[in-house]
Amino acid sequence: MSQQTVSSQQAPGAPRSGRLPKINPVFFVLAALLVAITLSNPNFVEPTGYMNFLKRAAPLAILAAGQIYVIVSGGFDLSVGSLITLTVVGSSMLLNNNADATWWVIPIMYAVGLAVGVVNGLVVSFLRVPSLIATLGMMITLNGAAFMWSSGSPRGYLPETFRFFGRVNIQGIPLIQFLPVALLVMLAAGSYLFWLMHRTNLGRMLHAIGDNPRAAQMSGVPIERVRITAFVVSSLSAVTAGILLGGFAGVSTDVGVGYELQAITACVIGGAQLLGGRGSVPASIAGALTLTAIFTLLNFIGLPKPVRDVVQGVILIVAVVLATYRRNRAGGT
């Protein structure tokens, strides 16, 4: 009898050991949406259907996988959208239609991303500016910089060598016929970020800081360094997303507009807790796929863009309400 009580007490206690208690509901939602898309458009099960879907979702998925680092550590990164714009505009300016320049332009863009992340992290950690304001300031600054660099009207196009990552499909693969390079980039970035978040000390320290910064500091977590790393990861993922988006779309100064909010939405749909302490990379990627799937579905049904905004708003709120409800029922905080 007493043993029974112990074991029954352990069962609800089990989720607290740090593992995900059950399968995250976002995966079920994603599966349901994919079925719904297939029902409304049977072509979706063809490789061209789902591969194009994954290709389109790749930048947002990478962005969300980076954003979750900052969210888990308790902050926000609003500067990613403008960093995408800066990456696309800056690359087109540096490349200047010269296809051979790609190999050094991409490292330069990553260096810019690194610098942006470090500055964000330094401002938040040492100047103690809340990340909302710090990255908002960075967003305004980077947007201005993109405009300044291109004198307001970016011109030219990105050469094929640069668009390779976002655009090219590797042909002739058995079973799936073709494989977009963007998808490979997403898988590589996603699995690296998964490993970094869930299999290393850094991930544990990020969770600790987000949960209780003071306690983390007392137990010897180098708060500043971990914070800066989180912002750097987010910025580098934004540059990656920017390179992919540069491959899909043309050069313009509003490529990245709205991506920061979509990335945060994706993380929230994936069950991340704003202000820190809870979040997972695969769930955020699934959140990004879910968001893209919703847009795709609404598109197939033939709803106009305004309705999509309303739906995104409602989904955002419902996702958070459900997450809060689940947490409260589980007795956590």
């Binding site: 926000f76 909010l261 929230v268 704003l274 202000l275 863009k305 305004p306 309705v307 999509r308 905004d309 309303v310 739906v311 995104q312 708003g313 409602v314 955002l316 709120i317 958070v320 309400v321 809060t324 409260n328």
Partner: peptide, 21 residues
Amino acid sequence: LEVNPLIATLGMALIIQGCLA
């Protein structure tokens, strides 16, 4: 509903924007 204020008002913003458009 205990929704984080950022998310709640962001969702509201999207809803208003959609209605307006």
